[in-house]
């Protein structure tokens, strides 16, 4: 039982912290009435998912720095003139990095569109509180 807790909870703490951040952002999106707070929650939710994927790509062998290095080829590429990539070097998996790089840029664009909608809602209703917007909508 204790071994199970150590292996599944403490050794994989990155995933648990990612879930905590995810639920923090989700709470802000659901429970907060202010539209800016909802967008801040959206950003936190998004970074939590990116943290999950980057954690999937990382490797830990042991020691300071985890025994692995950045996925950057040092020296000449294997199809270059006669040199070989260093033997025995472990890289973090670069595939999740590339996917999450795209996700960050798309997330910034999504945030910009959401902020434009907030400005439009403020021009129309004079408030950015969700319940006041609904009140005015029903009053009209």
């Amino acid at each position: 039982m204790i071994e199970w807790v150590v292996e599944e909870v403490f050794a994989k703490y990155n995933y648990w912290i990612s879930i905590v951040l995810m639920l923090t952002g989700f709470y802000a999106m659901i429970a907060k009435g202010n539209l800016m707070k909802k967008i801040i929650g959206l950003n936190i939710f998004q970074t939590a998912i990116i943290l999950f994927f980057i954690s999937l790509g990382d490797v830990y062998i042991g020691g300071w720095g985890g025994g692995v290095t950045e996925p950057i080829v040092k020296g000449v590429l294997p199809w270059g003139s006669g040199h070989v990539v260093e033997e025995g070097v472990v890289y973090a998996n670069p595939l999740p990095h590339v996917l999450m790089l795209t996700a960050i840029v798309v997330g910034a664009a999504t945030t910009a569109v959401a902020l434009a909608l907030v400005i439009r809602i403020y021009q129309e209703y004079g408030t950015i509180e969700e319940d006041e917007v609904i009140e005015k909508e029903q009053g009209v």
């Binding site: 980057i54 290095t69 999740p96 990095h97």
Partner: peptide, 14 residues
């Protein structure tokens, strides 16, 4: 976490 490209994109964009 050895994701340097994601790191500097987040610092610039985020």
């Amino acid at each position: 976490m050895h994701a340097v490209d994601v790191g500097f994109t987040e610092a610039a964009v985020g």
